[in-house]
């Protein structure tokens, strides 16, 4: 058996690519011990390995739907959330995590989600936790600016590691249902657009659009100073504790937070 080559499914570096690869790997019957999934990021160079065969995966909506339907119908909604969280993450092993998680899932059913003593399940669990944690951070550490009045428009910029816009939009579209607002994910060149009392969608931006939105989101406005004043005065000087503050609110989250930006 040692002479059987590892087969690497190479796919686009996005949700649809990864799930399409999971689909191809799943129907291949090649044996899950010999399968790897490799999302190909645009600017990276991948070395060819010996004793490895490569398969290029074409992305398609049918493949994606077929995987997701199977997860929902044959395993559970909980398993679906494991898969989706991994799919929106940016870890290079996310395809493997999904694929291997599912091979257990299709035999164990929903229980797979608790079986974190199995290494790949643990990995999927961990990815899901990290994605949820990041999404939660960006419910907390995100600031809007009112960049226009009549009608009012709010704009926020974030730079998350994973593609968490859809997760946080559930939250903000309810909270700010009556507002026009935009959240720009600067690193990934995507933005979510919300219409007052209406729907929202995530769009991929052109470089110019991204630049324009980023500038808009830095516009000065009157509440910035009031908020900074509050922020400064609510701390107890005798208890100053920068280390604790850094533990709770790591520096890289502060980049786009009004109270930490000098203007």
């Amino acid at each position: 058996m040692s002479d059987k080559p590892v087969r690497v499914y190479q796919c686009e570096d996005n949700i649809s690519g990864v799930l399409s690869a999971v689909y191809e790997a799943g129907i291949s019957g090649y044996g899950h011990k010999y399968i790897k999934i490799q999302p190909l990021a645009a600017n990276e160079i991948y070395e060819l390995e010996l004793f490895t065969e490569f398969v290029r995966v074409e992305s398609s909506d049918e493949k994606v739907e077929s995987v997701l339907d199977a997860v929902r119908n044959k395993i559970s909604n909980r398993a679906y959330s494991f898969v989706m969280c991994a799919a929106v993450s940016t870890y290079s092993d996310r395809g493997d995590a999904i694929y291997q998680f599912l091979t257990y899932g299709f035999s164990m059913g929903d229980k797979v989600c608790d079986a974190i003593q199995i290494p790949w399940v643990k990995r999927a669990f961990e990815i899901r936790r990290r994605v949820f944690n990041e999404a939660h951070f960006f419910r907390e550490f995100i600031r809007f600016r009112e960049v226009q009045k009549d009608p009012a428009l709010l704009v926020a910029t974030i730079e998350p590691e994973h593609h968490i816009l859809p997760i946080i939009m559930d939250h903000f579209s309810d909270r700010f249902a009556g507002e026009w607002f935009i959240i720009l994910d600067k690193g990934h060149g995507e933005a979510a657009f919300h219409q007052k009392n209406g729907d929202w969608e995530v769009r991929i931006l052109t470089t110019e659009e991204e630049k324009m939105l980023a500038e808009l989101g830095e516009q000065r406005e009157e509440y910035v100073e009031l908020w900074k004043t509050f922020f400064k005065h609510i701390a107890i000087p005798d208890r100053k504790n920068e280390k604790l503050q850094r533990n709770m609110l790591p520096l890289h989250y502060r980049k786009n937070l009004t109270e930490f930006i000098e203007e």
């Binding site: 907390e140 550490f141 208890r239 504790n241 709770m248």
Partner: peptide, 12 residues
């Protein structure tokens, strides 16, 4: 939901 952490490390 916490929204920020003040200089004393307490949640705002």
């Amino acid at each position: 939901i916490c929204h920020s952490f003040a200089a004393d490390g307490r949640c705002i």
